[in-house]
Simulated scan of single mutants.
Amino acid sequence: MKAQLKDIISKSILTPGVGQLDDFSHSLNPYAGCTFACSYCYVRQLPISLYRDEEWGTWVDIKSNAAELLRRDLLKARKKGPVTIFMASSTDPYQPLEHETKLTRSLLEVMLETPPDFLHLQTRSPLVVRDIDLLKKFGDKVRVSMTIETDKEDIRKAFAPTAPPIPARMKALREIKNAGITTQASLSPLLPCSREFPQKLRPVADRVTIDDFWMGDGSGGKRTERLGIYEIYKKTGMEKWYNPNTHKVVLNMMKEQIGDEVEVMLSKDGFTPVDPKREPGIGENLTFF
């Protein structure tokens, strides 16, 4: 079904970081709505979705004046202190319509005029490679985080059938890493995966961050429970994976197989901005249980 697209005029584009994003000064969402329509998306349980007549995944509002607003808001924010941006928290900045709108690309161009102290770019779309030329200009002030919640395509199709295939995401992240840009693989939310998953991530990610429904949906898993996600686990025969302790097994697996080369982190701590004043120790590897 074709998504309903609408251009809107926003009053602001930078939102103060709160809750799970309180380590960032701001979040930035170029769009409202997301056509990837992942079944487990916590935004389905937020007012932006609940108060719409249309089903989540069937509509997108395009913030057509976003670049103009960002140019203004960045200057204001810089006067108040360090600016660290999470893009995006409730939409995907590289969902299919970005091919035509190039809205996210325009925001990157504006940021390069007045660079933030740090930009965390969160997506599940291979389209992000289009903007490697701009991302390289941010130097060490950017991290590209690709959602790779599983390495099994049958699982991806069960939970997020309209999201990009896992191999395409892996390929894109490898290309970004090879371009010298810091990369992160976000196992968020963690879905059933194979024992070979760590080795697949080794060449594409500088950091692996694991999150699940209980830690990451902002309500201790209650939002996810209301979405009926457990039924998908049952249909795929993966009921044992729907457990708040599952992440510990995968976390240990990641540490044992690739922890000597890749930073392995957990939930909120794995999405924090880099502190430009912090000097990590040689061989430092932050891990959590």
Rank of each mutant, 00 (worst) to 15 (best):
232 I>T: 15
215 M>D: 06
150 T>F: 03
154 D>I: 00
116 P>V: 06
82 P>F: 01
84 T>Q: 08
128 V>Y: 14
93 P>N: 10
280 P>I: 05
52 R>N: 07
54 E>T: 01
252 N>L: 03
98 E>L: 05
142 V>I: 13
278 R>V: 07
227 L>M: 06
27 S>N: 06
87 M>N: 12
261 E>Q: 13
142 V>W: 00
119 L>D: 03
262 V>R: 10
244 P>Q: 02
21 L>V: 02
83 V>T: 15
220 G>M: 09
136 K>A: 08
122 Q>L: 13
215 M>W: 10
99 H>S: 14
29 N>D: 00
210 I>M: 13
119 L>A: 04
115 P>M: 06
36 F>M: 00
176 I>R: 09
271 F>D: 01
6 K>L: 04
67 A>K: 12
122 Q>H: 12
96 P>V: 04
52 R>P: 07
3 A>C: 14
45 Q>R: 15
110 V>C: 06
208 V>H: 09
83 V>S: 10
174 R>Y: 09
165 P>E: 00
55 E>Y: 05
31 Y>A: 03
55 E>C: 11
137 K>A: 08
86 F>W: 12
167 P>S: 12
278 R>Y: 12
179 A>M: 12
38 C>D: 02
49 S>G: 13
168 A>G: 05
113 E>W: 01
71 R>K: 13
263 E>T: 15
71 R>A: 06
26 H>Y: 15
66 A>S: 11
277 K>G: 00
121 L>R: 07
97 L>K: 02
72 R>E: 15
16 P>C: 03
44 R>L: 03
18 V>S: 14
74 L>F: 15
43 V>E: 07
54 E>V: 02
86 F>E: 03
92 D>K: 05
134 L>E: 11
258 I>W: 07
125 S>K: 03
254 M>N: 11
114 T>P: 02
179 A>C: 07
159 F>C: 14
55 E>W: 07
112 L>M: 06
205 A>D: 11
47 P>L: 04
44 R>H: 06
93 P>H: 12
230 Y>L: 09
75 L>R: 15
95 Q>K: 10
166 I>Y: 02
144 V>Y: 12
185 A>P: 03
4 Q>N: 11
177 K>M: 02
19 G>W: 10
262 V>N: 06
199 Q>A: 08
69 L>C: 09
16 P>T: 03
246 T>D: 00
272 T>C: 08
186 S>H: 01
179 A>L: 05
23 D>L: 10
156 R>S: 02
198 P>Y: 01
244 P>C: 07
194 S>P: 13
176 I>G: 13
190 L>Y: 08
52 R>C: 00
1 M>D: 04
9 I>P: 05
191 L>A: 11
78 R>P: 03
181 I>Q: 11
287 T>W: 15
56 W>R: 04
183 T>S: 15
19 G>M: 06
253 M>R: 15
116 P>T: 02
212 D>F: 05
83 V>K: 09
111 M>I: 01
79 K>S: 10
48 I>W: 09
284 E>N: 14
127 L>H: 08
280 P>R: 13
136 K>W: 00
218 G>H: 01
221 G>C: 07
93 P>W: 12
275 D>Q: 07
178 N>V: 01
136 K>M: 13
200 K>Q: 14
15 T>D: 11
242 Y>S: 04
108 L>D: 03
244 P>S: 08
188 S>F: 01
180 G>K: 08
204 V>G: 08
181 I>E: 07
3 A>R: 12
279 E>L: 14
68 E>V: 15
258 I>D: 11
260 D>S: 05
271 F>A: 12
